[in-house]
Amino acid sequence: MLHALANPARFLRLMAAIRPWAAGVAVLGLGVGLAWGLLYSPPDYQQGETVRIMYIHVPAAWMGMFIYAAMAVASATALIWRHPVAELVAKASAPAGAAFTLICLITGSLWGKPMWGAWWVWDARLTSMLILFFLYLGYIALWEAFDDPARAGRAAAILALVGAINLPIIKFSVDWWNTMHQPASVLTLEGPKIHPDILWPLLITAIGAKGYYVWLLTVRVRAEILKRQARILRFAAATDRRAG
């Protein structure tokens, strides 16, 4: 299965087959989930209407973490089996993950103003997401730092794995730091159990966001493969010209 997918042409056919389904899941999930959450779900008894920020904030946070995990798995596949397409999957994932993480940070900040009275609070979760955002930026910067895509891809894969091993430790240390400096904890989702009227739109939005990510992957990986092929053709043309 893994080796079959290493053939870019076969991978492109699979991507083309998945694309409409992913797009459907994305449109349906994000449409229904966001409409339900933003328009029809009940306001929170304490937070009022501002709780609706959650329907964007929480799925974005989930996606930010999910995509880093996906990137780490793709990077491991790329390093262990020298899998050329897995490397491109990891590369194509990074901007999407960074964008979701940034959305999570911005909505968190917007939510913080009415809830905590400040645009930014060094809450453990927000701080962890900020560090995750930096890790994404470092990964993207490393890809851009080399002219040779083969070199860039494997260096970035090593970085993604080092980051994935370190991420739980960072998360733990930030939680530790937070309890040390900020004893009174802020609102958490685990608190009182979530009412189904809130949970359902949240889950549907999250599934829609996953669909969007898969759709984005099919588009971006295709673009990366075509870019590689264009690069090879350009080199071949340059060599021909010199030879002729």
Binding site: L135, L137, G138, A141, N166, I170, S173, V174, W177
Partner: peptide
């Protein structure tokens, strides 16, 4: 520093 500093945050905290 861009790659390394986020990874050494635990050292700073502890």
């Amino acid at each position: 520093p861009l790659l390394t500093l986020p990874l050494v945050i635990p050292v700073l905290i502890f």
